[in-house]
Structure formats: C-alpha cells, structure tokens
C-alpha cells in the first residue's frame, strides 16, 4: 500500500471546551480528489487550519507523506508541498495581482531572504507569475491592484496563488463560494484541470456543485466524520440524507 499523501489520525480540537473536531481520522491517497462536506459550523475549516498548522490540535496526529507534522509550524509545511486557499479571501489588497502571485513564488525560494535586490527586478518570477495568472484567465489584469478586481476574480487569484507554489497537496476551502453560475463553471474547470499528481482536498458546503469533482467524499457534522468513502457510496448513504440532503 502506498503512503497516504495526507493522513489524519484520531484528531481532536476544542475551542474553550467546545469540540470543533472530534476523533477525526481521514486518509487521502496521492492524486486523490477528496471532497469534504458538512453544514455550517461542522468544523471543516477548523480541520484545514490544523492540517496547515494555523491551529494545533488538542490531541491526535497529522501526517504528510508519512511524516508527522502535527506540531510543525505552518511555513515548514508549505515547504513540504502543502498549499491552501481561504474561505474568506485573504489577498494583499493594495498590491497588484502579479505581486500577489510573486509572493506565492517567493515563499518557496531562497530569494526571499535577499535584502538587496528589489522583488520587481526578478524577471523570471514575473514571467512565471503571469503564466500562472493565465491559468485563471487573469493575465490581462496582472498590473492592477487587487482592490480593482471583482469578487469572482479575487476567488481565482486565491487559487492561482496556491497553484503558483506547484503544491503536492492542495487544500481548497469553498473555492466556489459566492460565485455566479458562469464563474462556478470556470473555477470547476480550473480545478478539474489541476495535474493528476496533485492531491486535492476541497471543502464545499453545497454538495451538488462540487460533487462531480470528487472521487471520495467525507461528511463532517458537529466535528465528527459521519460518512467517509467513495463518491457514490456516500451519496447513497442513509446518514448523508439525514444530515445533509434532508434539509
């Protein structure tokens, strides 16, 4: 059996006594497309925050490619090939799109310690950043500040910033949230076009829109895994209907 790209073992997280993650165990294989669904407040984002290291769990273990990272600081996990997007758009608003993406490139390069040469003079990084913006059809806006672009475009910059890092494991937190029908199709195509060697874990709380992207699905409710398995089995499961499709 291959080493899972991401393995979560018996994870627990309490916020001041309130459990947000309860005995969660999930294993994601390299190249898998995993969808995490669950109602508002189910603990989906909290789970992501523990995978990235923004919060440390109360107990349990997180492994990336077999290596334990449970208490590793976030930037070290990024260097192991982990990247994420945020449910609440988290961009550098005053800066241009190309600068935003360039920061994504810079984070993994030793150039980030260079205290002499201006970032804008690295032609290779600019070229690469514009290529990445092209992946989300935003290269024509490269030199515009984030404040000038629409909400849907910002969502695409979120994804582009993570893609720029050529991650091995990509965590997408509600990448379709707040998008129009047309924009949804765009982003869905974009996610579908991510190279197969990238492991993708995607949160969506509206099941229908994201289901076609997923091979495996995990349903969270009150911080617990309710159902977990192949796409069709989860959809057919009685408990899924109860928790989710019921209302």
């Amino acid at each position: 059996m291959t080493t899972p790209a991401l393995e979560i073992i018996d994870l627990n997280k309490n916020f001041g006594g309130l459990p947000a993650t309860q005995n969660v165990s999930i294993s994601v294989q390299p190249g898998e497309r995993r969808l995490i669904i669950g109602p508002n407040g189910a603990g989906k984002t909290t789970l992501f925050n523990q995978i990235t290291g923004d919060f440390f769990p109360t107990s349990g273990t997180i492994k990336l490619f077999g290596k334990e990272v449970t208490r590793l600081r976030p930037h070290k996990r990024a260097h192991m090939g982990l990247a994420r997007t945020y449910q609440i758009i988290t961009l550098f608003n005053k800066d241009t799109l190309v600068h935003n993406i360039t920061l994504g490139l810079l984070g993994l390069r030793t150039t980030r310690w260079n205290m002499l040469r201006p970032l804008a003079t690295y032609g290779d990084m600019r070229t690469e950043a514009i290529r990445v913006l092209g992946l989300v059809n935003l290269d024509h806006l490269a030199d515009r500040p984030v404040t000038d672009i629409s909400y849907g475009e910002k969502r695409r910059v979120e994804i582009a910033m993570a893609l720029a890092q050529k991650p091995k494991v990509l965590l997408l937190d509600e990448p379709l949230a707040g998008l129009s029908a047309g924009e949804r199709t765009n982003v869905k195509d974009l996610v579908a076009s991510i190279p197969r060697e990238v492991t993708v874990v995607m949160i969506e709380h509206d099941m229908d829109t994201a289901l076609e992207l997923a091979e495996t699905v995990t349903l969270l409710h009150y911080g617990k895994v309710i159902v977990d398995g192949p796409h069709d089995a989860v959809v057919a499961d009685e408990k899924t209907r109860e928790v989710y499709l019921g209302h």
Binding site: H75, H79, A83, L91, L103, G107, R112
Partner: peptide, 16 residues
C-alpha cells in the same frame, strides 16, 4: 506581506 497578511505569508512558506 507579514504586515498585511501574516497568516497567508506563513501558509506561503515565509517564516513570519
């Protein structure tokens, strides 16, 4: 970047 979005910077690989 660490001034504007410290969490994002850490997630991008910067030791804030």
């Amino acid at each position: 970047g660490t001034r504007d979005q410290p969490r994002r910077m850490a997630a991008l690989g910067f030791d804030v």
